[in-house]
Design a protein around this nucleic acid. Sequence first.
RNA 1: GGGCGCAUAGCUCAGCUGGUUCAGAGCACCUGCCUUACAAGCAGGGGGUCGGCGGUUCGAAUCCGUCUGCGCCCACCA
Length: 881
Amino acid sequence: MEISSKYDPSQIEGKWYQWWLDNKCFHSEPDEREPYTIVIPPPNVTGILHMGHVLNITLNDVLIRRARMDGKNACWVPGTDHASIATESKVVAKLKARGISKEDLTREEFLKYAWEWKEEHGGIILNQLRKLGASCDWDRTRFTMDPDLSDSVIRTFVYFYKKGLIYRGVRMVNWDPVGLTAVSDEEVIHRDTKSHFYHLRYYISDGQGHPTDKYLVIATTRPETIMADAAISVNPADERYGWLKGKKVLIPLINREIPVIEDSYVEMDFGTGCLKVTPAHDVNDYEIGLRHNLPVIDIIDDHGRLNENAVILVGEDRLVARKKIVKMLEEAGNLEKVEEYTSPVGYSERTDAVIEPKLSTQWFLKMDQLAGMALESVESGKVKLIPDKYRNTYRHWMENVRDWCISRQLWWGQRIPAWYLPDGRYVVETDENKALAAAQAIMPGITAGDLVQDEDVLDTWFSSWLWPISVFDPSKPGDSKAEGNADLKYYYPTNDLVTGPDILFFWVARMIMAGDEFMGEEPFRNVYLTGIVRDKLGRKMSKTLGNSPDPIDLITEYGADSVRIGMLLCSSAGNDIFYDVSQVEQGRNFCGKIWNSYRLVSGFNVDEALPQSEACAAAVKWFSNKLAQAIETVEDHYSKFRISDALMTIYKLFWDDYCSWYLELVKPGFGQAIDKATFDATIGFFEDLLKLIHPVMPFITEELWHAIRPGRESDTIMYAPTPKAGACDAAFIDAFELAKETVAGLRAVRNQKGISPKEGLQVKVKGAFPAELLPVVAKLSNTASLEVCEDFGEASGASFMVRTVEVFVALNVNVEEEIAKIEAQIEYQKSFLEGVRKKLSNENFTAHAPEKVVAMERKKEQDSLSKIESLQSQLSALKNK
RNA sequence: GGGCGCAUAGCUCAGCUGGUUCAGAGCACCUGCCUUACAAGCAGGGGGUCGGCGGUUCGAAUCCGUCUGCGCCCACCA
């Protein structure tokens, strides 16, 4: 049957994925084998595949497939994350498009829509992972809001509450006035934003609430918050403002009297040295307010509009109010001047709204104790970060961690299990019945109807930090008495985690905390941190820029194998990946190369009676050594998570060594047959190569593994044992390099002298050339006669030097030309020798350099001397003619 | 502003404890080939004072200092 020279993945990839599914190839159950476990970094349930996933998932898949072929019980648990903010905002947007506002819905109605959306879109990304070839154990697919996983989250909350680590506190949070939720510091993006620096006059009060003619000037970027001012602060060391001590000033426009206080926080040389203190709307001001017992006047509502406390401009959006108040201040004569000013402003990562610092009551989890444990886990090396440059960053974060604000003003997520009594006290229990019982204990006679559950839900990470535990046994987290089921005991801790450095703290560190707390053991041994996928210009892939290709389109065009190896060949750990289509093209080319080498091998005619030629025997010997050597290198790279290096080693082994050298050597001439021994070896090598390639290119390798040897219908390369490195004869490999160089030299002679490749050469070799490899050189260079001799004799021809070997090609050559060439070579050798001798005559060198290095120099000297000698005798032979 | 890291070929990166695996790989580029597996290919080839400047050393891409440029994290001077 004719096999097309073009490889067509569309005929192959889907077929094999289905076959693997049908034959339960991905499924794992505890048994006596050693487990190798990975939990997927759960993608957002409503997300769609992007290039970052491709990188991450492929790396995960390479690791799990390798482990599986190594005979481990490999288990890769897939799943999705409910991603409270991201999903909720998508649902809100979708409802809005249908003319429905979230505010018009009850919590239950909204959640019904949200679940519908989840059911509709939740499977998309998982299906996309299958197209990529992800060998997840789909029977174990989990979702962070599965009922039992949600239970474990609630139980965990109660656990930490009862342990005294969860508390309710008033805190300045980052308020997203569009998303109507508090967002964590990490979800705020600071961008330099052009604004203005308004210099405002605050008149000194006469004590009766009337302005005097004296005033001070403050500089602010937020004039709309003056109505919330609680004081003016100056630095106590600032001599300019000594006279202000004990004075009161009047807030412009509303004439409210506020004190002048002194606080060293104020920088004397910034602005005017006077700071308006607005505790309700600025984090630092809040801290100052605490120190000086200042009132907190909150003038901005949840939507970012001024409220009644503002007295003026009530109901205006804060940004609109800013413009209006500037005009009012100007008219009132309080605006001294306006400067252009660029300052960092916080924006919501999710909604891009300007973040409003806002005081609110939130739930917090104390971090110091947990962070201490998690720091120790990494410092001690129990968890290894790859690359380990992230250890510094990790330490810095853990040592400066702040308490974790775990409440979110959303509906999509696990609702906080706190119930309020009518008097404001509250109880924290896992369910309403227990809450009622607890409430009755402190307020007898209370009924279920009197209790009101907290409206907020928990931060998404508060569920995903349990992931490596809860996917196996959701009953474990938060229950110190729970034994843990068989799965948990077998699979926990997992082995490796592959994820992006951007969630090192959000997720990785917190998983370590949860693991330490609930299991007494870290959830994984190695954390491989990938880079961020960027475009060719170094920009982050983003929807708005439109610079992110759809991975599914790429897979359709090039095939998953090409996309996988294309991404991985150039991705070293921790380095960002600059994605370009050419990488995937390289992957496609590699597929083509593999495919065509199969076409060649499958077309061999075997002649059982044919004896193995010397050249073939040498080729087989060489490649088996080369293979052993490469396998060892590959294992070393993998063990250090140098995935791209491992793949490049395999790539070159296949392309350069197997195809360009080995197959060229053993392939029979047109119409001729191959001997049995060489053929068997060739197929065997091919299989080993397929197995090495399989973890990164699962589809084409599965196809060819079946094609190359019939009778494997019920089997899969997925479980074929990884080839192990055998003994490797490095000296032979080195000798073969000599043969390669000789072949290259002979080709060069042909080019130079214009000799057709079909015309046989007469070649003599002088020096330590292994006789075993003469047939190799002869075959590859079409040499009619090749012998090792002591002396080149009288014949004229071209010669060249290959390391320790001199090669002489019998030709009719221009003697003059040849003489000139040899003389030039002698000149070069002489100057080289001079350099070496200069080095050797340096006593400092011979005294300080290691013996090995000195010996090397001496050898250079000797080699050079003998080369010169040989060249000179050649020269005189030529001259005698 | 504080901390961490990076700078090697046009691009992406290797280069471990200073010295023969030290100037490398892949891609891109140039030249010649539609040679019987493969033009998505084959055979050749060019290309880097290892960011600048100092220092240590017999010897520095490698160690130290410094400058310049870049990246990330933390904090956000109103």
